[in-house]
Amino acid sequence: MGLAVKSTVPFLKPLFFRLPQLFSTCMSFSLVADMGIHRGSIGNWFMSICCFCFVVTLIILTVELRRLPSEFPFFWYLSNTYACYAALLCLSASIIYSITYVRFLPCGPYQDQAIAATVFSCIASVFYTTEVVKMWEHCKIYKTTCCVLTVPGLLKVLETFTAGIILTFISNTSLYLHQPALEWCVAVYSFCFIPAALAILLNLGEWEYRLPVPFPLFQLVLTLLSILLYVSALVLWPLYQFSEELSGQPQRSRDGDCRDELTYNMCTGDQRRAVAVLTAVSLLVYVADLGDWARQVSVGTEDQPRDS
């Protein structure tokens, strides 16, 4: 049954998912590229996201049309993993681009192009999400599995994605180099990204059962450790970024590059707040992940035979 769903993938996806995804990302890329110097660095970042999704989707479409997935079953897992990340990428790009740049553009053709590009990016996110949902339904019908099309898999995708966005924001070293506590937060974000990404790789390669300890127990311990680390970051990051007593900036307007007008870069104050919000979101995701792994460990313990 698992082979049946994989054999239908090359025919279903190009018709219902790939072409709309290609069209939406291409339109977003083209509209922002046509803005020229008015797109700014934020526009370049948004354009690079759309371009990346377009290129990878085109590669996947080419492989599927040549019916190569039947020869490389692992490709099916990679394409579904990519769809999860592409949905999040397009959605986050739309949100960040609209609230940090588009709303400050003066009324005119450039603002109209930026709004249209944002809409097409949202449409692309919808199609990528629809693909994930449809493949989840196919997995249930045909009794096959894909690590990212499960609750633990999707939670790991969210953990790695939010950590990746946070690491992108803190690439501005001026946010934390002046405080050891903030450097600790950066270390937390970097460290917690590694086991989450490792878990996805282990599942994709079906190597999770080669560990010396049960995989659910392994993930339970790592997730609990990540929660403790994220709790410290959730306390320290806002405390040292927004407290005047600790040399923080409680008001956005006090940052020299933060003004209620059009800027070509995301201002420092917005980066600080984005990291604080994403830290809280990541913590919630890890808590949900901990609950799921705790359930799996308890179920596995109950299923073990007991001595009479």
Rank of each mutant, 00 (worst) to 15 (best):
V5C: 01
V5Y: 12
S7D: 06
S7Q: 08
P10G: 02
L12P: 00
L12V: 06
L15C: 12
F16E: 01
L19D: 08
P20W: 12
Q21W: 07
Q21F: 03
L22T: 14
C26E: 11
S28N: 03
F29D: 05
R39S: 05
S41W: 06
W45N: 14
F46I: 11
M47S: 09
C51S: 08
C53Q: 14
F54Y: 09
T57W: 01
T57Y: 06
I59P: 04
L65W: 10
A83W: 11
A83H: 13
C90D: 14
S92W: 11
T100R: 12
L105G: 04
Q111N: 10
Q113Y: 07
A116D: 08
V119S: 13
V119I: 15
A124L: 09
T144M: 02
C146F: 11
C146S: 15
C147G: 15
V148A: 13
L149S: 14
T150M: 12
P152K: 10
G153S: 11
K156G: 04
T160K: 12
T160M: 15
A163T: 10
A163W: 03
I166T: 13
I166K: 08
I166F: 06
L167K: 12
Y176S: 07
P180W: 11
C185Q: 03
A187G: 04
F193Q: 03
P195L: 09
L211K: 03
L211G: 04
L211E: 02
P216E: 08
P216W: 06
F218H: 02
Q219N: 15
L220N: 01
L222R: 02
I227S: 02
V231K: 01
S232Y: 08
A233P: 04
L234T: 07
L234F: 09
V235A: 04
V235Y: 10
Q241S: 15
F242K: 04
E245R: 15
S247N: 13
Q249S: 15
Q251F: 14
S253E: 15
R254V: 12
C258R: 03
R259K: 15
E261A: 09
N265C: 03
N265P: 00
R272Y: 10
R272W: 10
V275Q: 01
V277Y: 14
T279W: 07
S282G: 08
L283F: 09
L283R: 00
Y286I: 01
V287C: 11
A288L: 10
A288Q: 05
D289M: 05
A294D: 02
T301Q: 00
D303Q: 14
D303W: 00
S308N: 05
S308W: 06
